[in-house]
Design a binder for these strands. Structure first.
Lengths: 126, 126
DNA sequence: CTCGATTGCTACTGAATCAGTAGCACAGCG
DNA sequence: CGCTGTGCTACTGATTCAGTAGCAATCGAG
């Protein structure tokens, strides 16, 4: 029963519980898409998020639904009030991320092929 | 070379790049700890985050450093200006998470053993 | 310098999660 | 009935994570 042992939100602090929920592949992306692109169907979400695996998408959808962040109606999936609230707190991140990305790009122009974080090497100690 | 192929931040949008960076185990937790508990050593971080694997912690540390969010001095690891900026945007999440957790707890008091998201089961026992 | 303690980090194994593909059940339409 | 669209599950292989052990370097004490 890995449900009650592994991802036990290592802490009781709500912020850590939230980080545990959002710190999963596509969790924030799905919420963001649902809040910015309006209601989407399962397959719309797959397409807009870059062909996520249906298994993973379904898992995130269930978790997000259990967290009361999103819901599912006849028109597809949609963000619920709580989800929009969280999204509101995430919006500043979107603005900040742009200046941050610009700074990173200007600081290491030749190193930002893809992710820019997972460098192949950082040798040259000291 | 998984560095340039897998986690390609499925999108070019900075927000998705950021979500890709933060959407990993302990990424946000490490930054949060560094910003709230001040400079920490490698092992302090391990302890305060709940015994993270050194391999994973080291990976997050490298990514966060490449992202210019944190740095490493003689006194241990510490958040850099950029990291504090991001933390500032994360603080509202902390406040919101508390009311959210309270709502979730009052809505399903007997279901919030641990994570409250990963339901133990949903497919009738067969 | 040697001892012991601390720090930063790597290596290894097994488990959990993720990606990618195929396919099924159900509903609406002609 | 056949066709299309939607929601979702199952399966396999790859990636990531957890947990443990251990090593090189550093620092204070003797």
């Amino acid at each position: 029963m890995p449900e009650l042992s592994v991802r036990g939100s290592r802490s009781r602090k709500p912020i850590m519980v939230l980080f545990d929920l959002l710190g999963r592949r596509w969790a924030m992306g799905v919420l963001w898409t649902l809040c910015t692109s309006g209601p989407c169907t399962f397959r719309d979400l797959q397409d807009q998020c870059g062909s996520v695996s249906p298994s993973v998408l379904n898992a995130r959808l269930k978790e997000l639904r259990n967290a009361k962040l999103i819901g599912h109606s006849g028109q597809g999936y949609h963000a619920e009030p709580l989800g929009f609230e969280l999204h509101e707190r995430l919006v500043p991140l979107g603005a900040w991320s742009r200046s941050w990305a610009a700074l990173l790009a200007s600081d290491a122009p030749e190193a930002r092929h893809e992710t820019a974080f997972t460098q192949p090497d950082r040798s040259s100690g000291s």
